[in-house]
Simulated scan of single mutants.
Amino acid sequence: MKTLLHSLLLFTAPFFTAQTATPEQIISDLPELEITEGINLHMISPEPIQYVDLSTDKLTGDLPASSIARIKITDNPVSEKDKKKQSISFFSGDTVGIITVVGQSFIAQYKVVYRSQDNLNTITNIHIQPEAMQPIEFDKMSFSNRELRQFALDIIQNKADKKPVRTENNLNLRMQLNNVYVMADYIFLDMNFKNTSNLSYDLEALKFSIEDKKIHKATNNQSIEMTPVFQLNPQKHFRKNFRNIYVFKKFTYPNSKVMMIRLIEEQLSGRTIEMKVNYSDILKADTF
């Protein structure tokens, strides 16, 4: 297991200036976590983890997933002669260190307490709860995945009953840009896909790119791929209808270019459909 915290995450964590509206915290007020030698403690965050700090070298860990921190007592290779001596290096109830987890919109801190291996009630994973989170306000306007998800849910709860911004039909497929929304520095694309054939659709990719509106020579075409920072539904298969919200950080492009959206099916199918979105469509975005 890779070590983090004093070597990796401490130096790769983003540098930021944050303000909190919460009072100071002292060690005695921190919630406690129990940890035992030879057992990993998994801390599950409701949003991607930006930074983790372990206050002592008695603890080590890594990030096996963007929203999970895996912590354990540091392994110290010792000889058979020293094993008995090491076994009493911690006493039940000793404070081993402080764990600090920083998400996109919060900071949470825990006091880690040692429990002997005889304790069968030692926890192996916890979900970071709202009561343990202190909100963080970053200088730049930025939303957490949790907030983006809520905005997307607000959009998708509204029926797409107004005239769509763009529509394309091909091979019994219909791709529709229902609307474009903007919130702070984020652009939300509300999209709908309809399959009128009896063959279900296995989606390989939905690709977004900025490309030249007019291509005089194929070799001169410049394509810039764009990746959503968030999508509401990761679904890869639909039978008849599929609606999703795709979120991008604010972008601009000149009138000589268009946003190209390509729906591509898996395997050797030729069922691919494309849509061109002019920048004027983005400029007409609604707010919510």
Score class of each variant (00 low, 15 high):
9 L>H: 14
10 L>N: 14
17 T>L: 14
17 T>C: 10
17 T>M: 12
21 A>H: 09
22 T>I: 03
23 P>E: 10
24 E>K: 07
25 Q>N: 12
35 I>D: 11
38 G>E: 11
44 I>P: 02
46 P>M: 04
47 E>M: 02
70 R>D: 06
73 I>D: 01
74 T>Y: 07
82 D>V: 10
96 V>Q: 00
105 S>N: 13
113 V>I: 15
117 Q>P: 13
117 Q>G: 08
118 D>N: 10
127 H>L: 11
128 I>D: 05
132 A>T: 03
138 F>S: 12
139 D>Q: 09
139 D>L: 08
144 S>H: 04
146 R>C: 10
151 F>Q: 07
163 K>N: 08
164 P>S: 11
170 N>M: 12
179 N>Y: 00
180 V>N: 01
182 V>I: 08
196 T>Q: 15
197 S>M: 06
198 N>P: 12
205 A>Y: 10
209 S>V: 13
214 K>M: 10
218 A>Y: 13
218 A>D: 13
219 T>D: 12
227 T>R: 07
229 V>Y: 05
233 N>P: 04
238 F>S: 00
240 K>Q: 09
254 P>Q: 01
256 S>M: 01
256 S>A: 08
258 V>Y: 09
261 I>Q: 01
266 E>A: 10
270 G>F: 02
270 G>S: 12
273 I>Q: 01
279 Y>K: 08
280 S>Q: 11
285 A>S: 07
